[in-house]
Every structure is written in structure tokens, then in C-alpha cells.
Amino acid sequence: MGERHNGQVQPSDASPMSDAARREAFARHVEPEIPVLLRVARTLTGSAADAEDLVQETLIRAYRAMDQFDGAHPRAWLLTILRNTGSNLRRRTRPDLVEDWNALADPKPAFGAERPETPQDAVLVDVLDEELERAINALDARFRAVLVMVDVHGLSYAECAEALGIPVGTVMSRLSRARDRMRKHLKATGRLS
């Protein structure tokens, strides 16, 4: 297989993969990650239907790029494709929301600042303890995305960094602040004793 290219579909000098080898590699490395991709896509898009569209497009790109995947860290590779695909799809289909999507990767979030609610801000938690939901929704979207990906969906710091296109250190600092806010909110409302 060729070199890993950070999830970008790029031309390869290597001889093309046979269809059978491509299907086999796809089934082995990609299909087991579909549930995680759906979870992350739901966090990024705010809707189950949009998440399925995004994952479908991501899988098509991954399939085409299988010969450029080096076999290591498939989840991180797919999360990068997912992020790039989501950004492109959003630019094409919902130009009004591109700024909200890009804001998740903004290096300087105004922590604690009030921002108007947008569709991007809708949190992807349907069935929730009410107080937990209120605490999550009270977070800035950038902090919320990191908290949901790491603590709710179980991504590692590095996987979350790939999905959002931010450094691991930024994931850690946003996570720390988000958790601290959550802890204080839940403590104040008696949810944490």
C-alpha cells in the first residue's frame, strides 16, 4: 500500500489495487469503524440524517483512497477524511453554515462568551439526563464538541484532534475547561454531591 496522506485523496505512484484487494482492505479496516464515524458525524452535523449522508460520502472517499492507506490507525485516517468531507459538503450544500463548522477548529474560542444559537450548536444528545443535557448545552460549541467526542463517544485525544483538525494540546485544554464547567454546573444543581 502507498503512503498515508492525512486522509487526503491523492494520486499514487504505486500500481493500482485490484478490486478484490480494495474490497478486502475496506472490509477489514473501514467497516468496523462505521458506528464510530456515525457518532462523530452526528456530533459535527447535529442531525442523524446529515450524519448518515456525511458518513456515506466519507466511505466512498475512503474506498477510492484505500491504496493510499498504510494499514495503521484506520480510525484516525477515517476521521481526517470525515472532517475534510464534512467541510467540503457543508461548503457546497449549506454555505450559510460553513462559519459554524469552521468555528469548531477556531484556535481562540471565547470561553464562556455568549454566542447566538445556530443549527451547529444543537447538541446531539437525544436521550439524556435533563441536568446533564443542560450542562452540556451551556458549553461553548467548541468545548462541547471535544467533551462529547472524548467523554461520551470514547475517542482518544489524538482521534478527537484528527476529527476536529486541532492539536492534541488544544483538545486537552478544551476538555479540561469543559469538564470543569460541567463539574461546577452539576455540583451547583446537586447532580454531583
Binding site: R39, R42, V125, V127, L128, D129, D151, V152, M182
Partner: peptide
Amino acid sequence: LHSSLSDLGSTL
């Protein structure tokens, strides 16, 4: 807190 959020993940 982590445990509550993680439990939430299993329902989602």
C-alpha cells in the same frame, strides 16, 4: 462526571 457521560454514550 466521566462515568455519567460515558453511560450516556452507550445510549447514543
